[in-house]
Computed example of a mutant assay.
Amino acid sequence: MARLREAQKQMTRRLLLDAGLDLFASKGYSTTTVDDIASAVGTTRVTFYAYFPSKVDLMKALISERLNAALDRVPSAEHGSTERELVAVVEDGSRERIRAWLAAASERWETIRPYTTTAFEAAAVDAEIRALLDAWLNEAIGDVRDGLDRAGRFPAGTRHLRGVIAITELDHVARHWTPGHWGAGREEMLDVLTESWFGTIGRH
């Protein structure tokens, strides 16, 4: 019986997260209310608050749980989370490894876009989400810096900045590029992005 109750609780939580993401993506983060999310699941705001203290907390869960899982990010003592493959790719620094990683990453863009787009929208109106999103981007920047540190590539004082440039660029393209957008098909986009990453963090 206890196991069934726990399964029902997990399902309700999952449904609230699903509904929150759908509504944030379709209606917008600021205009979506707790009542909207609860109604979409066929429940009440009382039930919503049993799982999430606020709409902000639901958004935080979408970023820290679901987005990290979709991006293969795992807990890290140094950065909060890390993607080990990204660190290894940066350490290697070859054009081929960089392009292969970017190509694999681009396969996930459609899946992660509702999360990242909503997170940026929420960050514009909520300081807590802004801080969380900044921290999340800094974790990925930390992965690039770690890879460059391991490789001993480029002056140490420039490695963090190189990570900032690479991750900011990747995030923008991941959120906005669609086939043919900006005049580039997928292969052309990957060629240009690879060229840029290789120039910024690659092994020359």
Rank of each mutant, 00 (worst) to 15 (best):
V41L: 08
L4F: 14
Y115N: 09
R3N: 11
E188Q: 15
E78A: 14
A104P: 02
G152V: 13
D143F: 00
V125G: 01
P155Y: 09
D126R: 05
E195K: 05
A88P: 00
A104G: 05
V173M: 15
A38M: 07
A124N: 09
R45S: 13
A69L: 12
E121R: 00
G42H: 10
W177S: 13
E128Q: 15
L190P: 13
H181K: 09
S54L: 10
V144H: 02
R175T: 10
N138L: 03
L71H: 10
S94W: 06
T12E: 11
N138S: 13
D72V: 06
A156W: 03
L62F: 09
A127H: 09
E107P: 04
T44Y: 07
G142C: 03
A88N: 03
A105N: 12
A100N: 09
F52Q: 12
I98M: 06
Q8V: 14
D146A: 07
G183C: 13
T158S: 10
L137H: 04
Y51Q: 12
D143G: 03
A174R: 07
L137S: 13
D143N: 11
L17P: 04
G163V: 05
A124S: 12
S76R: 00
H79I: 04
V46P: 01
L133T: 00
L16N: 08
L58I: 10
L102D: 09
D57Q: 14
L190R: 15
A38I: 07
A7Q: 14
R130P: 00
R130A: 15
L71M: 15
L23A: 07
S94Y: 04
T168D: 15
A174K: 02
F24N: 01
V164K: 08
A119I: 03
N138T: 02
S196Q: 13
L161E: 14
E83G: 06
A7Y: 03
I98P: 11
E91C: 01
D35G: 04
E128F: 02
H176L: 11
A61C: 15
R73L: 03
F48L: 12
A70E: 15
V87M: 02
A174H: 08
L17V: 09
D126K: 00
G180C: 08
R13V: 08
H176T: 13
T33F: 01
A174Q: 13
H172Y: 11
L15S: 10
A184I: 05
V41Q: 08
G152I: 08
F154I: 06
M59P: 00
A124H: 08
K27C: 02
A123S: 13
R159H: 04
V144F: 02
R162E: 09
V125Y: 02
E65N: 12
R130T: 10
S106M: 13
